[in-house]
Amino acid sequence: MDSERIEEYLEAIYKRQRTETPVSTSALAKDLAVSLPAITDMLRRLESEGLIEYVANKGAVLTTQGNERAVSVVRRHRLWERFLTDILGVKWDRVHHEACRLEHATSPETERKLASLLGNIDTCPHGYPIPDKNGNIKEQEVAPLSEFEPGQSACIETVAEETPHSLRDIDKLGLKPKTVVTVEKKNSDGSIELQTTGERRWLKKEVAALLLVKPVSAESKAAAVEEIAIAKLATGESGIVRSYTGGRGMLGRCLSMGFTPGSLVKMLKNFGSGPVLVKVHDTEVALGRGIAEKIVVTKNKAVC
């Protein structure tokens, strides 16, 4: 019996346990795409190894030992997903299956190196928390966006269903985790109109249900977006161009260099004095401090 399959089972039980305990065999059969008898067989084995407690016809619960092992798999899985999106540039809708294979072949040393390469990232690309190296996990208190009323603001934490299709949709809408949104209108068909950093978005009901969010108070929402000059962006921060406060003389040049409203500007180098280096429309542009003080951008602050 290979440990890979054991880990797959533990992982599936772990994920299910957040919503139901004990985890039913039928639910596992669905998640793992395996027949019911096969599941039952396997659960018996896991029980004999002391990884779960299994009650026939009711389901399975992880033991402390089983939980430890499951958390460790989850940690590896989510680290690999981060590696795949952030370092290799694989799209976030394609990383899950890849990570499923890599997680089992990861030695403790590789895991350590991976974690240090990624730095202090604590969620997977889809917003789920990555357990720390001691197995502690920060549980999130979230609700689907579809339950929110007009006027309420929320911060997107995770995406409930990690199917490639829904992930692609969400990516296109620019609603990845850590985005603050404000519900503007709920339509009769359950679709939602919302606002995010000044842009309006329209969401189908099904998509809104997939977005698990945390409510954000009005004050912190106001604080979530701030208007600042490009020169005030720290290295690594991004903002969206809003306006230009200088004379008309440089306006034309700024516009043709791509500093049009709505353009994303990423600060590559800001040493606090002297010129800054930004990325806008695929190219690196050097801006004298004087002009960087005159282009105003909105910046999303991490309030959630």
């Binding site: 440089m250 040049r253 010129p275 190219t283 542009v285 004298g288 960087a292």
Partner: peptide, 11 residues
């Protein structure tokens, strides 16, 4: 006249 600032692409 007005002093102009640097705005230049870094290839």
């Amino acid at each position: 006249g007005e002093r102009t600032a640097l705005i230049m692409e870094l290839p």
